[in-house]
């Protein structure tokens, strides 16, 4: 990324068409622009959150327990006097890391499995399809619960479980994209000019699957955050007092019936904003990549 300016200039003429298209789509859909803004905000919170928040997210202060939102504590304080605002912002890093790690893992594994099955076909393809069908035969959140229960109750296993339940979507997408291009003219030409199967697959065919994959990644990130937060809401993975949105909502839920709404509402709201951002971003990216699929 550091040597961006020089090649960008020469590529400018070639890229200007798609760049204009991008500007056109963004102008037609200001919601996507909003999504990009929110995305930048979330990234900022994840990177610098712990150093900009006003209070230590773990510091307790019994004298200030359960205070409603005020100028001093924007989101109020929880039952042992911790600042909810600081906790919500600091939690961004953990929540995003879990979902990004899970999605990256399912992206890589799904791409490899899908590409192999789509390119070579045959019994490999049949086995993979049966395996994916079996995963999809479970209600996915329930399968994630079962996997975490079986592997042990840690954050890493939350990531593995979320990756496993997301993997079929990527594998199917890549398999379909690779399969339709397996015998395309450019792939045959590459093969004839002496490239190995693996090279043709990785460098000539697979890159074509990337645009739809990016849309899938963005939509999937929101879903992965929801899943991970849901798992920690029922007491899996993240342990208190670590700040994490799902577990904060779970702790705050005990106080909602007595009227202390800020404990659960703010982390829940943040979780919602994060998921909303990735969903909007996914829809926006889909408009850019494939305008026909707009719904």
């Amino acid at each position: 990324m550091t040597d961006m300016p020089a090649p960008a200039k020469s590529a400018n003429a070639r890229q200007s068409g798609s760049f204009e298209h991008l500007v056109y789509v963004l102008r037609a859909n200001p919601v996507t622009l909003l999504a990009f803004g929110l995305f930048a905000f979330l990234i900022f919170c994840a990177l610098f959150g712990p150093s900009v928040v006003p209070y230590d997210p773990l510091e307790t202060n019994a004298a200030k327990a359960l205070q409603p939102p005020s100028m001093e504590h924007w989101f109020g304080t929880d039952q042992i006097g911790r600042d909810v605002f600081s906790r919500v912002i600091v939690a961004t890093r953990l929540d995003l890391s879990i979902s990004v790690a899970a999605v990256a893992l399912s992206f890589v594994v799904g791409s490899i499995l899908g590409a192999i099955a789509g390119y070579w076909g045959g019994w490999l393809d049949i086995i993979l399809n049966r395996f994916l069908d079996t995963i999809m035969a479970f209600p996915l959140f329930v399968l994630a619960m079962g996997i975490v229960a079986a592997l042990g109750n840690t954050i890493e296993n939350i990531i593995y479980a979320t990756a496993i339940i997301n993997m079929p979507f990527y594998a199917r997408l890549v398999r379909a994209e690779v399969n339709i291009r397996r015998d395309a003219g450019f792939a045959r030409a590459a093969k004839l000019s002496g490239n190995s199967d693996l090279r043709v697959l990785a460098l000539h065919i697979f890159p074509n699957a990337l645009p739809p994959m990016m849309v899938q990644v963005s939509l999937n990130l929101g879903w992965a955050i929801l899943n991970a937060a849901g798992l920690s809401f029922i007491g899996l993975g993240v342990r208190p007092p670590t700040p994490e949105w799902g577990i904060m909502v779970a702790e705050g839920a005990n106080f909602i019936v007595s009227g202390e709404w800020w404990l659960a509402v703010f982390p829940g709201l943040w979780l919602m904003i994060a998921v909303f951002t990735f969903n909007l971003l996914g829809d926006g990216l889909r408009d850019i990549v494939d305008p026909r699929k707009r719904t």
Binding site: G222, L226, A229, G230, F233, G246, V249, A250, G252, A253, I256, A264, V265, G268, L269, L271, M272, V275, F276, N279
Partner: peptide
Amino acid sequence: VSLPTFFTGI
């Protein structure tokens, strides 16, 4: 699709 069910419930 963005609302976490547990949050809506609360």
